[in-house]
Design a protein around this nucleic acid. Structure first.
Lengths: 190, 190
DNA sequence: ATTCTATATGTCAATAGTTACATAGGGTTG
DNA sequence: CAACCCTATGTAACTATTGACATATAGAAT
């Protein structure tokens, strides 16, 4: 079983839905920490069905193409729960920006500044998006953090991770810019 | 050109070396943010040579197998420098632990606690390793941060990123454990 | 009118990365 | 004396992921 398979099972554990719906979820909330597009999802659903972890029924539609609504099976729920508490091994980081930072000494610092300013901006924006989602979620639950056993609990945990991650990343980019400006001999900061 | 290709060029820009040496570097300092093992490196070196970004000369050895020392060419250095200041697009995060956190509500919180405690420990350890390397690096340069244009500058930047990353990650894991314990109805914390 | 977007499901080719297989001499540990 | 580790270079099979191709209808925008 792949992580994508578990991601799909997890979504189906909340609500039976179509491959198309799953693809939408893999764009927006889940996509913040695990992405997949439909070309990966449809074959994976077929595999899950072959292993009897999901079933589907065709829903005929008049104005739109027919769809297959997938439902998680008892066996699917069982294997999902087992995975959820199984240990996670090494999350090897692969970060192109950090790789570039490592070799920075080879190029004109003034050129690098633009790169890191742009990345700082990107991460600040992502941070703002996460914070907005959190505010909206809090408004919906009257400011209280969501209780365990409720599906939104996971959303709350992962949002906090996203916020911490982006804040750290943006901060580092800005710090790199500072370091570069300090180290630049001619044309002092601004 | 792949990121791995640039990673290898960057290492060769510091010092001409063999594929085996490059594989070692891809384990240790570079491996903190970009990994590759020898089965990927040897074919990549062949490709770099086919594009005339590197050359090699065979060094015959008596007690050990002969080796090929690779040297970066002018063209290689040029393309590397161009890449170093080129914009980085989306670094999509794929994190199994965060994925599991999202679906946490499905399982007994007491079981999840173990998972996050283990991960907190892992990231605390990684953090300690980075801090140790930084201390040793600082000792070698008499406490002063390294100057730009010096190869260690990149190491300094990336170490700071690693430290920030691991500290944030460990902190989040510990916070999740807290949240889980607070949310557990029976068997109150410890 | 035409183009674009949304719904809906699929296949196919290419790339990147992991793991195992393969060879081979020298040194170390049990 | 056997089993492993280090040096050193390669190949082969497999898996995961991306991007493009393919089809089809309805509605909205240009």
């Amino acid at each position: 079983m792949t992580n994508l398979g578990y991601a799909l099972l997890g979504l189906l554990a909340r609500e039976a839905q179509s491959g198309y719906d799953l693809a939408q979820s893999m764009k927006m909330p889940v996509g913040f920490f695990w992405q997949a597009n439909h070309s990966q999802i449809y074959p994976e659903l077929a595999r899950l069905q072959a292993e009897e972890l999901v079933t589907h029924q065709v829903v005929e539609q008049h104005d739109r193409p027919n769809k297959k609504i997938y439902t998680i099976t008892e066996a699917g729920l069982e294997i999902l729960k087992k995975w959820l508490i199984s240990p996670v091994d090494g999350v090897p980081v692969r970060d192109e920006l950090v790789l570039k930072a490592y070799y920075l000494w080879l190029v004109d610092p003034a050129r690098s500044v633009a790169l890191f300013e742009q990345q700082a901006h990107r991460h600040r924006q992502q941070l703002a998006q996460y914070e907005k989602i959190l505010r909206e979620g809090k408004a919906a639950t009257e400011g209280k953090p969501p209780t365990l056993n409720h599906p939104f609990f996971g959303g709350y945990l992962t949002l906090m991770r996203g916020i911490g991650y982006e804040r750290e990343y943006a901060g580092w980019c800005e710090w790199v810019v500072e370091q570069l400006k300090l180290a630049m001999p001619d044309r002092p900061a601004e």
